[in-house]
Design a protein around this nucleic acid. Sequence first.
DNA 1: AAGTGGTCTAGACCACGTG
DNA 2: ACGTGGTCTAGACCACTTT
Lengths: 237, 237
Amino acid sequence: MEKRALYLRIRDYLAADIAAGKWAENEKLPSERQLSEQFNTTRVTARQALTQLEAEGLIFRSNRRGWFVTPPRINYDPSRDMGFVRYVEDQGFSARTQTLEKKLIELPDHIADEVGLDRGTPVYEILRRRYINDRPCLIEKIFLNPKHCPGVLQHSLDRSLWSLLKAEYDLVPVERHLEIYPQTLEQPIAEALDANTGTSGLYIRRICRDQNGDFLELDEEFWLHNALKVVVSVMPD
Amino acid sequence: MEKRALYLRIRDYLAADIAAGKWAENEKLPSERQLSEQFNTTRVTARQALTQLEAEGLIFRSNRRGWFVTPPRINYDPSRDMGFVRYVEDQGFSARTQTLEKKLIELPDHIADEVGLDRGTPVYEILRRRYINDRPCLIEKIFLNPKHCPGVLQHSLDRSLWSLLKAEYDLVPVERHLEIYPQTLEQPIAEALDANTGTSGLYIRRICRDQNGDFLELDEEFWLHNALKVVVSVMPD
DNA sequence: AAGTGGTCTAGACCACGTG
DNA sequence: ACGTGGTCTAGACCACTTT
């Protein structure tokens, strides 16, 4: 006799309802108390089912507001920089970018060592938040080498950065290094994404260099784990 | 007055101990009951701290055996196929590959449609498990187009597949499509990795084609989420 | 003011892994 | 046989959001 745990059966039940479209994208599920009553159990067990669905990416929570059905993942190719908004819109979603900060700073030592710049080198730092269908999905921290794009902060940065760099400075990345791994979102980032501290996320980092191997850009992206599917095409070496 | 939740303070305490090397890699932490006593709380709260550390990738659990310190992530470049074992060993780890199954099957319809083969096309299916430092870290399901590598199943597959395909059939992939996203591990896969059903994982899929655009290989990998850092280098289009 | 999730207590029984 | 985590009960109070 094999009997799945109660919380997994509740999970299955809710997953089936979600698949059947009982709730629309971004629509709120019944409260934990309602669910625990409905399934004749306690809140702890109902929560366990919800947490499992959250890990699977089927639902997400908004702090103290409730649980909601996750919209489909977008495809995202971090090796292409031409128009995030356009790229997302081609998939039938709306997208929006918001610049949170822009300033000139000294590159942190450990990053300087990594990209091969002198310690203390000044770089532009840009902090942006990106929305998909009005849902904040990622925080992006960009470091730009000012040697190659002096004064870039004076432009509006709510648009495609690389189309700006191409148009104004004729900059084109030649070499791109990508790093991708699952990680939890730390407090300030989780907060900015209306998520709980410790929620799972996907970390993406990109380093771009020009034809001389000069450092152009370091881009760090902190995504909600359920918002995207990374898609990359690679040609042989 | 800001006061972090108890489970987060326990988390911080344990995280500090781990960072300080109080327990070695793969070493077992004290039991949940011991921890809850030590921190003067209940098992539920101690577990919440452990679960948080698990999400962060600092510790992992082995079914009903306990909680253990996670070894460092390996770098992994899914766009390079030359010698997983060698690649891992270059980073100072040991690696091992185990073939679980190999057979000729009909390609599932939805995959056939995707890669552009006729439905019902026979393909080789290979199931492998890969270990890093004797810890099972991923399950790999490979579909090979038999048109390009007839009889490949007669060889030992516990070695680098692409070095075999190159040596025996002069096959070299020209175009590679990658998809990467966080997902939970389903029962059979979690089981094969000595993990719990529903544990978070990282899903990686690679489609390789030859110079004519012919389908060569579909590779699906199911990784423990804390075992790797995906690293890819991309040259411009 | 009412409802929601976030946190926490103090137990319990079970299935499984280890000696 | 014993220790471990896995699951579950039946409550409670709090912080925050919504009405």
